[in-house]
């Protein structure tokens, strides 16, 4: 285990920006864990992702103070190798689509071709990932003929297929229906089982509560809370700071306030059912 990414006193400003987008950020990302990145829009979540991947400052320019280390080496000292280590799924799937391929199949295979992998293996891996992300039916379609939701899945597939150790995924479900959203989380869960490190920006806090290990809460370019999801997502004071919390946590805290003896504030549906049932039993005994 140990830290796979480290931010040391990172402050970053986009070119011409009046204020830094990230302010004096220090944290460690541990290998094999799933991090949910949450917080208000404009709080620095996407910039944080861009820093970990090195897009900031190498692509966006701007000014970086402090260090972002990936496996001990500064992102600014990496060349193209960082793209093999870290897979990055953009918030806007249009950004991801290469624009040079005629079909979804070729689009998903594109990155592997660039890595010089034999054709047979490319085909095997592409088919496997297309099954996993449920886009097989789209294989022969043009990437530009897809709905927003389908495009998000293709973008995700084109990154998963590269089998990077670290995945940074920025709001992959904004265009998806509840079923599609759950299936994306199920995909991320299988990636986690393959010991991948996952950093996911997502507003759907109830799903973060269900699937993530750790939560990072951003506000105004800083991390205002970080740690185990059960600890962070049961902290009602975060609501006043613009973060959302799981429905069941809010329910639990209201019940507790009204005197129901809950042993803890639940963050997942399953935990809520157990904790509330136990508290009701407890109350009966009293």
């Amino acid at each position: 285990m140990g830290a796979v990414i480290e931010c040391k006193n990172v402050t970053y400003s986009y070119p011409l920006a009046k204020e830094p987008a990230i302010k004096d950020l220090s944290l460690e990302i541990e290998r094999g864990k799933f991090y949910g990145v949450v917080g208000e829009n404009g709080s620095g979540k996407t910039t944080f992702c861009a820093l970990l991947r090195g897009f900031a400052p190498s692509f966006y320019k701007g000014e970086l103070k402090g260090e972002v280390l990936v496996e001990g080496k500064k992102t600014t000292d990496y060349g193209g190798e960082l793209s093999a280590k870290i897979g990055y799924v953009f918030q806007n799937p249009f950004t991801q689509i290469s624009g040079v391929k005629d079909t979804v199949f070729e689009e998903v295979a594109y990155g592997l071709e660039n890595f010089g992998i034999p054709a047979e293996e490319i085909e095997r891996r592409v088919v496997e990932v297309m099954q996993m992300t449920d886009i097989e039916a789209l294989a022969m379609k043009s990437p530009f003929d897809l709905s927003g939701g389908q495009m998000q899945r293709v973008a995700l597939a084109s990154v998963i297929v590269l089998e990077p150790d670290i995945l940074i995924i920025d709001e992959p479900t904004s265009q998806l229906d509840p079923e599609g959203t759950e299936s994306v989380f199920a995909i991320i869960k299988t990636l986690k089982e393959k010991q991948k490190t996952i950093i996911l920006v997502e507003h759907k806090i109830d799903l973060i509560a269900e699937y993530a290990d750790e939560v990072l809460v951003f506000k105004d370019g800083q991390v205002i809370a970080a740690g185990d999801k059960r600890k962070i997502l049961s902290d009602m004071s975060l609501l006043e700071k613009g973060a959302s919390l799981p429905q069941v946590a809010v329910l639990g805290s209201m019940l507790k306030e009204r005197g129901l003896p809950l042993s803890e504030i639940p963050v997942t549906e399953k935990q809520a059912i157990e904790v509330i049932a136990r508290a009701l039993e407890e109350r009966k005994k009293q």
Binding site: G39, E40, N41, E171, S174, Q175, H203, G242, S244
Partner: peptide, 11 residues
């Protein structure tokens, strides 16, 4: 049409 997509709590 899907006004909530991508919105935070304040939105």
């Amino acid at each position: 049409d899907e006004p909530t997509a991508g919105q935070d709590m304040a939105g």
